[in-house]
């Protein structure tokens, strides 16, 4: 009788120990998964965790532009990685409105982001993808674009024209 009681007490203690160890193993597994998950998820979400710097880039000399001229200007994006190569390049359409006024248009169609091109003869920006057309002031002339071309800030600094870099303009709902 006493021996049976001792056995039952022993079994109860073993069961309690097993339950505790199961809980410990689950907690440790969750902890290790969490510890691995942090760097993995941070790699996945890296583009959202990075700051989005905006810098001024020199794109042309003031003397290169006649009043009324529209030219393609290229520049490096705000935060080019060392391994980005040619993909660090960006472009905009720059128009000289007056002696001291410039307008810089994003090269992305506001419909679906395709590259718009300036057609000098037609005095229009045209998109090859779905036929979006914009007037020279960037407003929509025809086709599916929902809004005018996005503009970049421009400034003149020591006889040089500078554009403030910006993210690829994403049209939202």
């Amino acid at each position: 009788m006493t021996e049976n009681k001792i056995d039952e007490t022993q079994q109860g203690a073993d069961e309690n120990k097993r339950r505790f160890l199961i809980k410990v193993s689950l907690v440790l597994s969750a902890l290790s998964a969490f510890a691995v998950g942090i760097p993995v998820v941070s790699a996945l979400l890296a583009p959202l965790l990075e700051k989005a710097p905006e810098v001024w880039r020199k794109v042309a000399d003031l003397d290169d532009f006649a009043i009324g001229a529209v030219k393609l200007v290229t520049f490096k994006n705000a935060d080019p990685e060392a391994w980005a190569g040619i993909t660090a390049q960006s472009a905009a359409w720059l128009r000289r409105d007056s002696a001291s006024m410039f307008t810089a248009f994003s090269a992305n169609c506001t419909h679906l982001g395709c590259p718009v091109r300036w057609e000098e003869g037609a005095q229009l920006f045209m998109c090859p993808c779905h036929g979006g057309v914009y007037y020279k002031d960037g407003t929509v002339a025809s086709g599916p674009p929902p809004k005018a071309l996005v503009q970049y800030p421009v400034r003149i600094n020591k006889q040089q024209i500078e554009i403030q870099t910006a993210p690829v303009p994403i049209t939202t709902l």
Binding site: L45, P47, L48, E50, D79, T87, V168, I170
Partner: peptide, 18 residues
């Protein structure tokens, strides 16, 4: 939408991460 677009491109623009 903008966050999803940034996630796809690997940043604000096309670049080294894309």
């Amino acid at each position: 939408g903008k966050l999803a677009a940034r996630l796809l491109m690997g940043g604000n623009t096309i670049g080294g991460h894309t």
